[in-house]
Design a protein around this nucleic acid. Structure first.
Lengths: 357, 357
DNA sequence: TTGTAGGCGTTATCAT
DNA sequence: ATGATAACGCCTACAA
């Protein structure tokens, strides 16, 4: 590799001057400037970011740990974070915790060791053992989507209470008596909050679900299928299923399909987290949509603010019910409004060209 | 931050000794070893990976640049790469080119500057201007999914020729006369190869598609919709559409649905790239499935081999037709076999627990 | 305006 | 077995 010294020699100056030219610092004559630039060009010199970071105590890098990269919900968030970060001259390195607390802790340490300037974490579980390490290291931390025990870090999250209340009301109005819930893990804040909010909403309507109709999955596909299987094997099976995550919703759908059960005739289904393909199913799936892009953007901005020494407030976005009929409900709420909600802004135009050969 | 010097002071030894203990090097007495370890523990010392990398000329980090993180195809690949890398003690930093050549070039430079030990790239376009930079830097490079002009780097790709031939035969056998193709960009190897292979297969059967029935999209959702719209507006519209990518397939589906066209009654549809939700549609979508997990794993292994000084051969995996009836074809090929094909191996068990409160 | 020198936190080569 | 000491490649007072 060619280093700054090589450039200095080639240009007949000292490394200090090269550095100054590189960083647009004061002083260098237009003449030496061009000489240095020429040398850099001829040698194809690229500064060593490691050395620079070591010296500068800054890597211009954000660390992002998602609970599961395969979950499109997190993939979208990751993309939004990256967009925002890049716009501010930061680069993002990802870690995939795969819904595992240990793997998450490992990644936290790895990223801390690499001296990221800030850490964005979608916590896998409530366990906040790793938070202490981050605090000690002094690296700014922002929590995304889920909270964690014993942390005072800023949080960017989604409030689904109102949407779940609307869903509960809609289900009751539709005449559902037995409501099955495929909840998230009890050791995640989102897992608990969604279930609690939904249960509370039902209770207000005098319909608390039976205990055996509430199962906890792990936010992944297979657990959704297993829960659906269990629920539909009950003597008094639910008339509608509410899956608290898109992956568990997918699993539940697969299971229902496998059992030859027709939605919503045999059993209704609603899912938390919208996905582009939900409207394509027959019937289209009723969902609670979350503003993923806004979440990622807000989280990145909060972290950047923290790095800049500010004290960003928690951000609380709100989810929205998109009623599409998969619970047998009557009126479809305007579907038109749902598309822009979760659509990332694309700057480059989409091209379609005819084959000309 | 606490540094090695702090630990050395605390333990009453030199930094050299601390370093030796840390790296399990020869020499330290069991006594000093425990003293050092204790100091490390008490101080909560964590080595600075930047400094270490600067000194060691190795970051134990792989760079992965995907063309579009939002495409589940690449998300799965990314996950597989990361799994394999971690198993070998490497960490992966991602870059999202977003199907843009410039952004990709930017990321290549960024990762090179950070001195990754190896680079894995899913090229956005044929343009290989960036390859020279990588070559000069001496950083090992492996190409994934797509090839690039003027590169001699090892490539891990998928051969869809046979699957496309089977698809062509199936469509012809089903009686399709007018076959519409939503091809990928002409400036990507996969875009061209899939179209070429499919066209050739049709030609063998005496059915070359009309030029106006072949449109090029950009591997993203909106372009699939636009292409489908254009094709279905033609006076002699196709009786079946073949989308050469899952995102364009999604867009096409949305467009067809929006126009009130029923698959396969009004128009058939086949898609390149399987996704978990394709079997859930009515009818289930006929696809050409790619072994994404195997691709990611193979690519990571090739890169690791390259880093180790070996000379890995190109890897060519094969895609498979999964016929589900969305083209109006009669016999459904065994669906059973399709699931395991693209399923990532999960080591931790899936848990489903009953609500006990 | 430019050069010299010291240090960022490690590891490795010498001595001791 | 352990301790100085010199890099690794860069930035930045301080001097000139």
């Amino acid at each position: 590799m060619t280093t700054m010294k090589d450039v200095a020699n080639r240009a007949g100056v000292s490394t200090a001057t090269v550095s100054r030219v590189l960083n647009g610092h004061a002083a260098p004559t237009e003449q030496t400037r061009t000489r240095v630039l020429a040398a850099i060009d001829e040698l194809g010199y690229r500064p060593n970011a490691l050395a620079r970071s070591l010296r500068m105590h800054s890597t211009k890098t954000l660390g992002l740990i998602v609970s599961d990269l395969l979950n499109p919900f997190f993939a979208e968030i990751a993309r939004a974070v990256e967009d925002e970060a890049r716009a501010h001259g930061y680069c993002v390195v990802f870690g995939n915790a795969d819904e595992s607390a240990e793997q998450q802790a490992t990644y936290v340490r790895t990223l801390l060791d690499r001296r990221v300037d800030g850490l964005l974490v979608c916590p896998a579980t409530d366990d906040g053992g790793w938070v202490a390490e981050v605090t000690e290291s002094g690296v700014p931390l922002v929590l995304l989507d889920r909270t964690v025990d014993g942390s005072t870090a800023p949080v960017v999250r989604v409030d689904g209470t109102e949407a779940l209340r609307e869903l509960a009301a809609s289900l009751v109005a539709t005449g559902h008596e037995r409501i099955g819930v495929i909840a998230g893990p009890a050791n995640t804040s989102t897992g608990r909050e969604r279930l609690d909010a939904f249960s509370a909403a039902l209770a207000e309507l005098g319909r608390r679900p039976r205990p055996e109709h509430v199962l906890h999955g792990d936010f992944r596909r297979a657990s959704g299928a297993a829960a659906a299987a269990a629920l539909m094997s009950l003597p008094e099976r639910p008339s509608v299923l509410v899956a608290m995550d898109n992956l568990m919703g997918l699993g539940a759908l697969e299971e229902l399909r496998g059992r030859g059960l027709v939605v919503p005739r045999d059993v209704g289904l609603a899912v938390y987290d919208d996905q582009p393909w939900f409207p394509l199913l027959d019937p289209p799936i009723t969902v609670i949509a979350q503003p993923t892009v806004a979440m990622g953007g807000a989280a990145a901005r909060s972290l950047l603010a923290l790095i800049a020494g500010e004290q960003p407030a928690d951000v609380r976005l709100t989810a929205r019910l998109v009623s599409r009929g998969s619970c047998g409900e009557a009126g479809l709420v305007s579907e038109r409004a749902s598309s822009p909600f979760n659509t990332a802004v694309r700057t480059r135009p989409t091209s379609v060209s005819e084959e000309d050969s």
